[in-house]
Amino acid sequence: MAVNGNETTGLIREAKAGSPAAIERLYERHAPRLLAFIRLRLGRTLRAHLESRDILQAALLRSFERLSQLEGNQEGELMAWLMRIAENEIRDRADYYQRQRRDATRDVPLDEAHAAIAAEIRSMSSRIVLDEEAARLERAIERLSDAHREIILLRKFEELGYREIAARLGRSEDACRMLLARAMAALTVAMTEGTT
């Protein structure tokens, strides 16, 4: 994070200024983690109905449309922002999936100038390959209890502060800290089990 932090900050600034190259690199860098988050957020049941890459695509396209609304230009802020958009997208679709599957690539209106970037985003989101290690981690997180998985998603993926997490989960900040420690320990054990 420290290594990339400065570069990310620069990229975010350029992306906001409208540089396609910066947008491309920014998204390329963050898409794998966002995809992992989406898959975990969906869970097994929803994943059977919703295509996580569709959601990734839609989330990236939406974020690109609203790039100017991104406050701050820090790595964590961007990630949290992207994941929030993805979460909204998931919620929308979870309500929707029984009626029909939507084509993520169609429902975001774009003008000509943005079409190229949108096309790149689409292409990129189908290119991402999760490496074996990331896939193992994902499976291990999936095996955790709901509470453990939730706190890891909130803290480690969405990078929310403890205050916000506490508000969301309806617990004290301390309890959340303790829960995260427990969740990480459980995840470690799960990963160990996965290897042996």
Partner: peptide, 22 residues
């Protein structure tokens, strides 16, 4: 010790793979 090593790996993976290698 084995678990701790595993934890440090997992923690590093969760914290640092947020971005592709430079």
């Amino acid at each position: 010790a084995a678990l701790v090593r595993q934890y440090l790996r997992v923690s590093a993976a969760l914290d640092c793979d947020r971005a592709a290698p430079p």
